[in-house]
């Protein structure tokens, strides 16, 4: 909170130490275009908060992005509140409040705030959990506290991908345990196939569980899966992805895949017309086969019923029930 000891001053850009990121929670590579455009038009409306350090330099408390955007826009003088006689942790909390009050924070910024409160400013985990997680819009549980500390530890390439190419947070947390080369493979897939949220989740889960199960790298597993399709074919990216996901699923679930193959073969052998549909229970859990058919006339109905009766008396039908 500002006090009578604080002064509003106009400082030259060279008086600000942009490299001192003690109080920063936003990575320096976050995009600034919108803010730069705004500052070019209107200048800095809300002064920065800074504290004096040795040699006439000043450390930024609030306004890292504003300062950088102003300098990018060619501004030489910046309005600043020069803060005095404040504890460091109080100033950091102020900077968090300033950010929370002015815009929605990115998960990476929240994570940085949580980690700095504990690691740099010595605030106890319990206090962070009870007082600061709710302030940041995070559920105050030990699980969530740890989750945000883990997010802060993500490698920079994954953090950048979360901002630049829509890498999902949960995906990043899983592949953070992979080698850098494996992470590169995944980021390459993300960029090539433009994976949506669900596909990212599915692909990450399959690759992660297979690499743990087989001891192979995610890259090797992916290459094996993509190689199982026809390498010479000129499939569309989405068809190639679908084929690879199918191959991965077969590797992950061999017994289930075999069961599905057997069922498919037996169903074909029944030679039922397309308007008669058989459906086994999901994942073959259960013992009932669902049959449905449609007919536009009594004749069609009789025809379908007769084909079903004929199918019911085949050994293939017995074998299908044997699979359930």
């Amino acid at each position: 909170m500002l006090s009578r000891f604080d002064r509003l001053e106009v400082l030259g850009a060279s008086q600000l130490d942009l490299g001192d990121r003690t109080y920063a929670i936003t990575p320096p590579w976050f995009p600034l275009e919108q803010l730069s455009t705004s500052i070019r038009k209107t200048g800095i409306i809300n002064p920065l908060h800074v504290e004096p350090v040795n040699g006439g330099q000043h450390r930024i408390i609030c306004g890292f992005r504003r300062a950088q955007a102003a300098i990018d826009a060619g501004l030489e003088d910046l309005p600043c509140w020069v803060r005095r006689k404040c504890g460091r942790s109080d100033l950091f909390v102020e900077s968090i409040l300033d950010n929370v009050g002015s815009r929605p924070l990115h998960e990476l910024e929240k994570a940085s705030a949580v980690a700095k409160l504990i690691e740099d400013f010595g605030i106890s985990r319990q206090k962070v959990l009870e007082e600061y997680l709710p302030l940041l819009g995070i559920r105050p549980t030990a699980f969530h506290l740890q989750r945000y500390l883990d997010i802060d530890q993500l490698p920079e390439q994954l953090k950048r991908a979360m901002v630049d190419s829509r890498l999902e947070l949960d995906t990043a947390l899983v592949i953070a345990h992979w080698t850098q080369a494996e992470q590169q493979t995944f980021l390459g897939l993300q960029s090539h196939f433009k994976l949506n949220v669900n596909t990212q989740k599915k692909l990450t889960e399959l690759l992660d569980e297979l690499r743990r199960k087989t001891g192979l790298s995610a890259t090797q597993i992916w290459e094996q899966a993509i190689g199982e399709g026809d390498p010479g074919s000129s499939k569309s990216p989405s068809a190639a992805l679908e084929q690879a996901l199918h191959s991965l699923l077969r590797l992950r679930m061999p017994t289930l895949s075999e069961l599905e193959d057997q069922y498919r073969e037996l169903k074909v052998a029944l030679r039922l017309p397309p308007e008669v549909r058989l459906r086994p229970p999901a994942y073959f859990e259960g013992d009932r086969l669902t049959v449905s058919f449609s007919a536009a006339s009594a004749g069609e109905f009789r025809e379908a019923a007769e084909r079903l009766r004929a199918a019911a008396n085949t050994k293939e039908m017995e074998e299908i029930f044997g699979l359930l």
Binding site: M253, T255, L256, L259, P281, A282, Y283, F284, E285, G286
Partner: peptide, 13 residues
Amino acid sequence: VPGEDGKLRYVKP
């Protein structure tokens, strides 16, 4: 695989 009760179990066979 998920069973009818939603719990994951080894595939039936």
